[in-house]
Design a protein around this nucleic acid. Structure first.
Lengths: 412, 412
DNA sequence: GTCTTTCGTTTGTCCGAACAACAATTCACC
DNA sequence: GGTGAATTGTTGTTCGGACAAACGAAAGAC
């Protein structure tokens, strides 16, 4: 590591190699399996160059060769020699994805391509101490890692947080439902594990947006917003294919849009925030759901067959807020996650109508509302994506910093 | 042009050269004058590599050599041989920047470094025909170009539009104050000029944000929002140093945030848009300004010595809307352009107070409100920036596509 | 069964950045 | 004022990596 990480903005020949290696791996990571011929077309490089890059990644045990005969896909086009297949290695690098929910923590071992190889979860009591959650997550990580091949390197840990995460260092500034303020959850987990690996933390809605963009409802869509109704309301934004973080990392906090000066008081101290109209409390009141079932609001909504008038009103409010989002970000897709998905199936008409009347025609004409394609796993898979990011940016150095034989290391 | 513009995402050696050449020119474009030693530090390349790049740009007559003796700046640090200076060539490439205002059109010849070399403007009557404005702008362009050296190449035209501009092709979808719908203003101007050069169009607030980011109040700030109060209200957003366009190009249209369901009717057909509370009409009513002076609202506000109670109320509304912006985009800087600047000097306290109570603490703590540093030229200079963009991305091919001896070509 | 098409492989070439050595120029110190 | 240290420009060489061409391999088309 003598010369890596140079801060300069110029590109030298090492950076070219790094970039090409990473781009190639990123493509395979995205589609799972390709052919070398496809890669030459996608990357615009020479056949021989692709051969070199594939060979290098193969020697790193990240991808593996597939004999052309078994690659023969039904969509095989013209004549000619079939191209050699390239796919992700079976025992390749993996990451640990952690999804801190309001009532339970989910941990998964995720391989390249977003394959969930193993998963485990545990309930989280209300108003938990950070170190308790850290210990619980560490135990889940140990369980999930136990079955991993010793030759598979662990690249990093990604954590989805229901709250505001500072971009610079991953500090959890505020997690309302956990009642955490300024918690350095990454170091807590690492201390509990007793190892040193890269940990990336980010907001759950941001990660939901990222996951839906990569392998969900937003594949091929470079500008989308993922609006999640959980206990609170938050949004994640993907712009030009990259996550919108903002200066501090708090972008997309649209739960407290001041949509109604005469509205109810919000816990933030102001009146008429969007969250007071479409948040968990409001929806629970509209369907007479007991307070302790608010974390499972999606199930409660799914059990309903027909919307109540109060729900219809909430649907209109949801559409109003979405109009603000559509005007501000001009996405091509808005994914409604959390219990908003159930709400959308019930009162989709009201949501669409309110959105159509309040949004500007120009941004409106290209936007689509949709359910998440990854269900409740959006944030988890997004956490995996940010953990993989260093590997995709520079495979060689990320593998150098990765951890081998994780099972025994964590046990000891 | 046999191999350029390859769609692939891999980098080859040509792209390295292109990128380095562009990055070097971009640096010089930003700071105006540097030394080769600074460039080696900034770009992280070898001295000899920088020498080669500088030499190539010098042979293109884009930058020029400065003898070290005259470079000797007072802030000269340690010992050693002084580094050779590099500055933009005096008769280098330039662009035409056009700022379509609500009541007048401004055209400038702008050189690298954002230097306004020549400018002219003409009034625009109310509800003008597009071809009339196009002819007027073409005449201004001819005037502005007349004095240009015949050896200076014209790289492109940038146009700032007070309305919604489609990103894909620059079509003006809607310009409310001009009452234009679906106007292809770029082709109109080109037809009036009788030449074929690249024309880039974008929203005025977006370009204001870009200009303030490059050479205004937001230098060094990668996440900022430029909120402009003109007749309407719009915002331009810079995220991570790049313009936020959104899917269609309409991002940042926050004038119709539904902030007050019981508010006044807006011309968009809905009630309580932000624009009804802080827009030109509302402010004009608050200071008893006649309707025909609304385009000059900034002057009217500047003439005021003390705010009226109605203005204070508008200030609070402005702060409320800014809170939504701060929560949504998490910028580090919010530049208040148009008449918002004058409003901010009068009722800055109210604006800040409302912002502080309604924005979340985390994004709030790092945000600053400020006046524009470029005055009324923000959008004009932003238009110049987008016109220069192809040159900075690839100097060689952009110069190849540029136009020489413009004065006589346009006269003919 | 042969031709065409497409792809993988190999070899050599070329381009551009890095490197090393040397000359140039200034400052600091005596 | 002279000398050494420090920094930079210049030049020639090296090296890494993409590219081009030639060749063989594997399929489909006739």
């Amino acid at each position: 590591m003598t010369r890596t990480g140079r801060p300069g903005t110029g590109s030298n020949q090492e950076s070219v190699r790094r970039h090409n290696l990473g781009t190639l791996l990123r493509h395979v990571h995205r589609v799972g399996q390709t052919s070398r011929a496809d890669l030459t077309g996608l990357m615009g490089l020479n056949r021989s160059t692709i051969a070199g890059l594939v060979g290098e990644l193969e020697s790193m045990r990240v991808i593996e060769h597939v004999t052309p005969s078994s690659t023969r896909s039904p969509a095989r086009q013209g004549a000619g020699r079939p191209s050699a297949g390239v796919r992700l290695a079976a025992d390749g690098p993996y990451v640990i994805a952690v999804d801190l929910g309001v009532d339970r923590a989910t941990v998964a071992r995720v391989g390249l391509g977003g394959r969930v190889l193993e998963r485990a979860s545990a309930p989280v009591e209300s108003r938990p101490e950070a170190w308790q959650v850290g210990a619980s997550v560490a135990a889940l990580i140990r369980a999930v890692v136990a079955g991993a091949p010793t030759t598979s390197p662990l690249v990093g840990i990604g954590v989805s947080v229901p709250g505001l995460v500072r971009r610079s260092d991953g500090l959890i500034r505020l997690a309302p439902n956990l009642e955490w303020v300024d918690v350095s959850f990454g170091s807590i987990v690492l201390a509990a594990l007793g190892v040193e690996i890269p940990v990336s933390l980010a907001n759950d809605a941001d990660l939901g947006a990222l996951a839906e963009h990569h392998r969900g409802a937003g594949v091929g869509v470079d500008d989308l917003v993922y609006v999640a109704g959980n206990v609170g309301v938050g949004a994640g934004v993907v712009v030009g294919g990259v996550r919108l973080t903002g200066s501090g990392g708090y972008a997309g906090e649209i739960g407290h849009l001041p949509l109604n000066p005469e509205g109810a008081m919000c816990h933030c101290g102001n009146a008429g925030c969007w969250e007071t109209e479409v948040g968990g409390t409001a929806v629970a009141a509209a369907i007479r759901c007991p307070a302790d079932r608010v974390p499972q609001l999606d199930e409660e909504l799914a059990a309903l067959s027909a919307p109540t008038p109060e729900l219809r009103r909430i649907g209109r409010h949801l559409g109003n807020g979405l109009a603000a989002i559509v005007n501000a970000f001009n996405p091509r897709l808005v994914v409604l996650g959390g219990y908003f998905s159930g709400l959308f199936t019930l009162v989709g008409g009201e949501v669409q109508a309110a959105l159509s009347t309040r949004a500007l025609p120009a941004p409106l004409e290209s936007v689509t509302l949709s359910h998440p394609a990854l269900g409740a796993d959006s944030s988890l898979l997004g956490a995996a994506e940010i953990a993989f990011e260093p590997l995709l940016a520079d495979p060689e150095s990320a593998l150098g910093a990765s951890l081998l034989d994780v099972g025994s290391r964590l046990a000891g």
